[in-house]
Design a protein around this nucleic acid. Sequence first.
RNA 1: GGGCACGUAGAUCAGCGGAAGAUCGCUGCUUUCGCAAAGCAGAGGUCGGGGGUUCAAAUCCCCCCGUGUCCA
Length: 854
Amino acid sequence: MDPSEYDLPFFHRGGFHRRTCVVCGHAFWTLGDHDRCQEAPCREYGFVGRPIFARPYSLGEMRETYLGFFERRGHTRVRRYPTVARWRNDVFFTQASIYDFQPWVTSGATPPPANPLTISQPVLRFIDLEEVGRSGRHFTLFEMLAHHAFNRPDHEVYFKDRTTELCHELLVSELGADPALITYKEEVWEGGGNLGPSLSVSALGLEVATLVFMEYLRDGDRLKPMPLTVVDTGYGLERLVWASQGTKSAYEAVFGAEYDELRRTFPARETAILIDHARALNFLLTDGVVPSNSKEGYFARLLLRRAQRILAKTPEAPSLRAILDRAAREIARDFPEVGADRDDLHAVVQAEIERYDEAIGRARQTIRRFEERARSVGQRVTSEQLLEWYDSLGVPPEVAVEELSEPPAIPEDFYARVAARHENERPTTDYAEKTEGWPEVPAGIPPTEVQYYLDPYTVAFDAHVVWSEGPFVVLDRTFFYPTGGGQVTDRGHLAELEVVEVARQGPHLLHRLERTAPFHPGDRVRGRVDPVRRTQLMQHHTATHLMNGALREILGPHVWQAGAFKSPESARIDVTHYRPLSKEELRRVDRRVNEVVREDRPVKSYFESRAEAERRFGFRLYQGGAVPGRDLRIVEVEGFDVEACGGTHCTHTSEVGAVAILGVERIQDGVVRLTYASGERALEVREEHEEILREASRRLGVPVAQLPEGIDRLLGEIEEARKLRRDRLKEDLGGTATRLLSDPSAVSTFGAVTVIAARLDLERAELMELSRLLSKEPGRVVVLAGEREGRGTLFVGSTAPGVSAAAVVDAAKDRFQGKGGGNPAAAPAVGEPGAPLTAALEAARSHARASAGG
RNA sequence: GGGCACGUAGAUCAGCGGAAGAUCGCUGCUUUCGCAAAGCAGAGGUCGGGGGUUCAAAUCCCCCCGUGUCCA
């Protein structure tokens, strides 16, 4: 990066000089006379016992000081976004404040909620999990304080100079840091195809902020200026608090009395882990993450189980629930939504603890059995086995060892070795672009006026073509709904041409026609949206909001939408929930939804400022994830459900008609999917179902109401018949056995051994059964030949100690090209029928007699 | 999203290429005034589903479905 990028007027005005760090070699700006940058490890921590700021701040004080400082300097305060980044498919969690605005705001597709803005965003960093409690400064969840500005060519807010000036003013004038202690180190930031210069701000060894200036697009080796440049700052709230107090670790400074209370029972590291995890869990659970075995749910499980493990080994430990509640009380001072419904949160946690106990209980049993078996063959359990058990059963090694009478040593680097086992797994990331293969709309084309927002009932309109390429058309305005928000595209016509799909691309809506569009910019065209399809989609979309509302009402506020899909045929919603839905719960959801339909509540769709909407409805608005933009489009089912949503909706619940639940399944641990139909489709589906029932009833000859009993009876009869057939076969074979035993040509006795040989018209399984009947007593050798469907089978069974059935078959099988073998007790072989089979039978008989001593 | 483990009688599991098993539970009988207990006898299995390899598959291979677990 060109050094001029960092050569800010602010540095010159303020009398900074540029130096090069003698340790890391980076250039940095300072007012002091350091020969090294102030960032660890170039400079050791120097603020413990010597606070950087003028006075100690608590977490809440520091946050308020920061946000207030930027508010007074023209920034709008924006509330936090969810910690689960449901609006992105490349990450699970919000890992930085800028994530809130990616990709739509940073790409310029939609305006930011405010500009410039300031925010305190709780973010999750699981990469630091092992460092929590060890390093003294790492958290799985911390608050990233930030001020952001988004600059368009026609509207520059501020950029590098002002950003750095604001940062310095905050640290020095507001917080009272010694200006000579601060260094601004030159770095390059790159991510997501963007890059730009950045400044790392440190004092006394502590990095307190990073100022990133997203300025360029990477195009191979070349850099292209971005149309929208972004100020992306990040200040660690916990670090600022720590720096202001100068305590030994960040945890004491951040958690205060809560830390001291737990510290009486637990060692320092465990105390930090417990509080940190409790804080992260409170946010995660509030934001609708249900512990599970995959995706974001796994991280909640990981935290919960780690905490539970610490508690389990301390007899006088409080319950996890108590620790979570204590943490939630602190958090709720600033984030009242966190853990607001304690009962629901307890239910989720309780379910998870029970599952953990069950898993560990099962695992203990498996481990005991494994060792028993190992010992019976003179082997011991290896430490490699401990790894295996942790990986596949979830048993921590110290628990496994408790179950073993001769435990192996737990490897020092146990968790590193677990990680090594997973080293070669390649995660596949899904970056599938919906509009792949679609042309890019050139810059300068005016954005499409989206009018389906205004009136979902308008299905015919006139508009002007503003751009066209091949089958793709952009209009000045449109009533066509594009694929998005889990709702499939509208179809219809532009002039006489069919519209196959509509998709959003930044500020434009592209209509894809059945063939090349004969339009030119400026042409006036008539648009007609397929009204039947549109109506059905509206009904399904509104039905989805009703489902969401009913599920939350009946199952509890941990229910969040984890995905949704609406097509003209059916709709589905995936929600977070910790166990399968019971029949009763499902029935109540069905009833409630249809009740709301009948109540004919108004469904209002309108735009409202983000701040006002959040104030009125809270965080729950973001069911589908964060929605960008200064104003939110609110879809409100009066008194029942409110969501920020861009879809087309009915204006009264009665228009949904009826909702028929078609199915419920657990698509993933912690996520339940409901499929349903509404409107015409609900009727059609019900008709189809009724027709199936009638047809089943006709075929079974049983009234519909008695179908279940009828089926049971039928199944019973089938079972009965099967048994009867089996019994009869056994009986028949029993008769054959009796006959054979009294047939002198079949039976010959040699001392204690009786050889029975015969040729029968039976198949393999029958020969086997017959042999079993004949050889119930010891000292019997049975040699049977059977012929069926052109194949000959030889079966030998033996209960005579000196005669091996396998040996007898081996001696005879060549005679009929037979293949087979077995064990001393039983041996079949299959080969040619007819004379060769007879020859084999004779050979087997003689061999059996010979081995019997005949 | 990926790795690993698992799916066998009502329950818990063994068996891991050659004749489907154990324990508990269940039913009946013996014993007892009755219960418990004990003894004896018995019922109960498309070995998760579907393909394939093999003379032969619960067992080996592939694909689904389900469960658990670890890791992103």
